[in-house]
Amino acid sequence: MDTSLHPQKLSVLSVLIFFGLWQSLAMLIHSNTFPLPIVVLDVLWQEISNGQLPYHLGITLIRLAISFTISMIIGCAIGILLGQYKQLNAFFDNWLVIFLNIPALVTIILCYVWFGLIETAAILAVVINKVPNVVVTIREGARTLDQDLMEMADCYRFGKWKTFLHVVWPQLHPFVMAAARSGLALIWKIILVVELLGRSNGMGYQLHLFFQLFDVASILAYTIAFVSVIQIIELFILKPLDQKALRWRR
């Protein structure tokens, strides 16, 4: 007899066990710093009802969208160039290593010191942190482009734009998706720090406020909201994009 559970049922079961464990631990510890799930859900509902959460979440998502888009465009362009031109890569490789190893906090502080506590500095700090990661991922993809297909495109006179669109970009797709996924995870974490340090709105600002008040229920409520939004982006934007782009695979 097959006793294995359907993956979807297993997924629901794992979430229920997670909340069950949380409930048990919270009851055991019985402290304001470790609230019950029901308390967190109640706070979440109140914050949604009074409009505070949608406002701050919206602001953070706008920052995320802008910095994500800029990082992906710049990172993809540089990554393709470095992957295709060995000499350019040899020259900029050390720069890349330096930028990859600068702590995010340093970049954020420097951007605020140099440009002031303005929106542009906040976005710039996120972009500077993310671009090197995108470059490294896309560079690997650009290095492994199928030369046979490139020759075919050359021989049949595709031209640069057609070659990029129909030969290069589809080959880079898995790398772009990997960079996008890791990018989303990294960017939203950096954005929270950026907001915490120098903005007067957004999730990071709110979390800072709750920290000062030791309001753990609100911190968890905002975290649940944000993680849910990121999951929705994955489910309704990234996965369909993946399925559409890879429909040719058997």
Partner: peptide, 15 residues
């Protein structure tokens, strides 16, 4: 104008 049939078909798998 040159037509070239390569050793491998070299078709774009995603088209």
């Amino acid at each position: 104008n040159i037509g070239y049939v390569f050793q491998n078909p070299r078709l774009l798998p995603w088209r």
